[in-house]
Every structure is written in C-alpha cells, then in structure tokens.
Design a protein around this nucleic acid. Structure first.
Length: 427
RNA sequence: GGAGAGAUGGCAGAGUGGUCGAAUGCGCCGGUUUGCUAAAUCGGUGUACCCUAUAAAUUGGGUACCGAGGGUUCGAAUCCCUCUCUCUCCGCCA
C-alpha cells in the first residue's frame, strides 16, 4: 500500500506505474475519494467536538435544567452518527482502492510485455554439452525410482507427485543445506503456520487479487500459504520495533500451496509447475532507507546465487520487466537455472524488493534515532524450492547410464551417497 | 466440542456511566544535586488522522483509539450483543 499523501503529491508517477504494470486502477477516483474522506472527517470532527463539549457541560448542569438542553443534544447526536457513517464509508472506500494501487517502479526496471522481455543481467556457469541424448527429470526420476507422478494424479489430481526413496533424501538434503547456509549468514530459521488469516495475506499483498491462486479452508476461513514469505514477513505485524533489532533476517521453511489457476496446458510435464512444494525462503526487514534496501536486495540475490554455485548448476539472472512485475514489487530479479529438458533457463528464484509497501499494510514499524515512528522496508528471495530445483539437479548431473551424480555439497546430507543409480521398480 | 474466568499505555496494575488518554508503580528521556557510579528529587514520556501556522525539525487546536465489531445513551474503558484471543477444568487427540 502506498501512502495516500504520496499519491496526492505524486499522482503522475503512480499513474505511470499502473500503466507500465498493466494494472487498471483509476487514480483520479482514488484522489476524489481521498478528498471526500478528508471532508467527511472534518465535518465529523467538528460535530463531535461540539457534542463532546455540550455533553460535558450537561454533566454539570442541575437536574431541573436538563430537559431543554437534552432536546438539542438528541438532534446533534443524530447528526454525529450520520457524519460518522459517512466518514467510515469514505474510509472504507479509500482503503479498498489503496489496496489495489500498485507500488511505484524503480526507475531502473526495464520495459516489456511479459517474461519474454525480461532483461538478462548475467550468466554464470556454462550449460553442459552432452555426449549422449540426455533424459529429462521425469525419465531420470522413474529410472531411479525416486518419483511417481502417474499414481499421484490418480489420487490427488493434476500437478501432484510422490517422491520416493533417495528422492526424499535429495529433497531434504537440498532444504537442509539451504537452511544451514542461511543460518551461517545470520538468518534466523523459522518453521511457520501453513494456514494464515486474511490479514497476513492482505498484509503481504497476496490479497486482494490473489484469491484465485490460493487455497482457502472452508470451515475456518484460513488461507494455505503459497510461500513462507507470508507468515515470516507478517511475523512482527502491528509492532513498533526497536532500531537495534533491525535488520531482521529470517529464513522460513514450509510447504507452499498454489492453485495454478489459469495455467492449464502450461508446463504440464514433470515437476516444474505443481500444486504443492517445499521452499526455504529468505526475508529481510530493514529500516526505511532506500540505499540499505537496495543493498539487501543484492545480498539476498547473492545468497541464492552462491547456493546454485554450490550445487554446480548454471544459471542466469534477469531483471524482471514492468509488464511481468507484480503489484507490490518495486523491482524484482529472477534467477533462472539451466534445465536441459527445456533447452533453456527456467525460473527457480525470485528476489523482490517492496519498499514500505508490505510494511504499511502490515503496520510493521520501528522507531528511528530521532524517536520518529517509520515503516520498515521488506524484501525476500527464494533460497531453494523443491522439487523444482530437482529438475536442474537431476538433468544437469545425469550420466549416460541414467545415474545421477550428487554434487559434493549435498553428500553429507545424503548419508555420504555420491550418486543415484537406476534400479528396477518393484512390481 | 462442553463449562467458567479474563483482555486497560513499553511492562505491572487501578478504574464499573460525565471532571478518564486514563491513578499508582516500574521502565525510558531530560534537569537539579553528588569526586565517579548509585541514590534522592523535579519535569517529561502512546499511535493515527484532520484543521492551522512554518522554509523546516515543529507549534497551536480538534477527533479517534482501553482486544475487534456492533448496540443502548445527550455522554461508554465502564452497560448490552457478536466475534477473536488467553487462562482453568472436562472431553477428544499426534
């Protein structure tokens, strides 16, 4: 959410960000409702002040003189109620609109229609030249007997899977490796509620707007998280933090649930796009300082890059263009990891910077040196998400015989195993 | 799931219809005193919004907020209803 005062003073940059993000919000309407809000607030304040004053006096008036004074006050009371109703309605209107106004783009964000026009910033590592015909992760997974999609579909519908045998170890190894690396970097690991209230979804800007993408529980009106970003960023919501606590560096691990509505027919094979996965996420909550916020954006991007390097996977970093950017982000860098089966890079990480957009919705604040209360800045990035990361892991490290070499970094978490070997499946 | 108790400022805790944004204590900030520290003592110490003045930190006025929402009343921290959360007991349970 943007500060209404900012919109009032800078309507044009806000309009421009709406246009570039292709989000249809009428800023003139926002400004009109803002005026209505303030007018109704002033009207209410004045009426209420009069009522307070006269009511106070009434308490001191002798009982015999009350009758006449009461008559006028009854009418005033009606007027106050009417004015209050009007003000509340205007406030609600404004809030509803403000939740839809997108964040203002960083000037550096490139222009483009969709993800095909994201701008590549760098490539690290060289995709392997195979001397044989490489298999995709599904064939590899079946051969190794670490994966079963067909039966999962029968039981749980499309975009579901079972991991089996060393597949389970491999997923847990990747997650465990990721958490330990983040702890080494001073991030506090957290397990989190997987179902959260609307406030947390709204506060992190998944609602309103993301209703179609999230699972909602029927009886308790809770939402299944699509990422631990939601509970972790919301962890201190409503609090005024001590400056000394900042920056808050946290790393959440959780299952992530996504409906993937509107993606029918897209990425249907394998483990790329599924309804449920595991993710280790990094979240930074820092002071309201543009330069510091940018530094953390670089830092969390770098954290993810280091992890991919440790997994010996080639990747590239892209600067996400305006048309592909979500409502809350100021800027976003995606990391795409080389996936031989796609003969291209596929998104595995997404590093977002939000300015105070989420913090304002979450009432996440701190007291600065001068004692002034200010909204924090928030950022997040994937550390690793599985099973998507298993795609490049299996495909890049496969051997001609269908075995897969486990990167050095993961071996201690795999009971010392150095490779996964095909086996015939039990009947 | 059933029965009961509770939710007040950074914390503890008073307040059961008007003089309450809220006693008191602790904490915190500033002053005074004292070789230093401590103690003592005096003063200050919430958030948001609106109006006003100002180049600005900010000043002056107003309104709201005592878990959340609604109601009664001229007037609600205080009375009523609904909800949320916490605690105790019973039930169920990994």
């Amino acid at each position: 959410m943007l500060d209404i005062k900012f919109i009032r003073q800078n309507p044009e940059p806000v309009r421009e960000s709406c246009r570039r993000k292709r989000i249809d919000v009428d800023i003139d309407q926002v400004l009109a409702v803002d005026v209505a809000c303030r007018e109704s607030k002033t009207a209410f304040d004045n009426l209420k002040a009069e009522q307070n004053r006269r009511s106070k006096e009434l308490g001191k008036v002798a009982a015999s003189e009350r009758g006449a004074a009461l008559e006028g006050l009854k009418q005033l009371s009606e007027d106050v109620k009417a004015a209050e109703g009007k003000m509340a309605a205007a406030d609600a209107d404004l809030r509803r609109l403000l939740l839809l106004v997108p964040n203002v783009l960083d000037p550096a964000v490139p222009s483009g229609r969709d993800d095909s026009e994201n701008v590549e910033l760098k490539r690290v590592g060289v995709p392997r030249e195979f001397a044989f015909k490489p298999r995709d992760h599904v064939d590899l997974g079946l051969g190794l007997d670490i994966l079963d999609i067909e039966r999962a579909t029968r039981i749980a519908g499309s975009r579901t899977y079972f991991l089996r045998n060393e597949g389970v170890l491999l997923e847990m190894a990747v997650l465990r490796f990721a958490i330990e690396r983040m702890m080494d970097k001073g991030f506090t690991p957290m397990t989190v509620p997987h179902m959260v209230r609307s406030e947390a979804m709204e506060g992190t800007a998944y609602l309103p707007g993301g209703e179609e993408q999230a699972y909602r529980t029927q009886q308790d009106d809770l939402w299944l998280i699509g990422t631990s970003e939601v509970p972790v960023t919301a962890y201190r919501m409503g609090e005024i933090l001590d400056l000394a606590e900042l920056p808050l560096k946290m790393t959440g691990i959780s299952p992530c649930y996504r409906r993937e509505a509107g993606t029918y027919g897209k990425d249907t094979r394998g483990l790329y796009r599924i309804h449920q996965f595991q993710k280790v996420e990094q979240v930074v909550i820092c002071r309201n300082d543009e330069a510091e916020s940018r530094q953390w954006h670089e830092a969390i991007l770098n954290n993810a890059e280091e992890l991919l390097q440790a997994l010996e996977l080639p990747y590239r970093v892209v600067d996400v263009c305006d048309g592909d950017l979500g409502r809350p982000q100021v800027r976003k860098f995606d990391i795409e990891t080389w996936m031989p089966s796609r003969n291209g890079y596929g998104e595995t990480h997404s590093a977002s910077r939000f300015h105070d957009y989420q913090a304002r919705r979450l009432e996440l604040r701190y007291r600065d040196e001068a004692g002034k209360v200010r909204y924090c800045h928030t950022l997040n990035n994937t550390v690793v998400a599985s099973p998507r990361i298993l795609i490049p892991l299996l495909e890049n490290h496969q051997q001609e015989d269908g075995s897969v070499v486990i990167p050095e970094a993961l071996r201690t978490y795999m009971g010392g195993r150095e490779r996964l070997v095909p086996r015939s499946r039990p009947a």
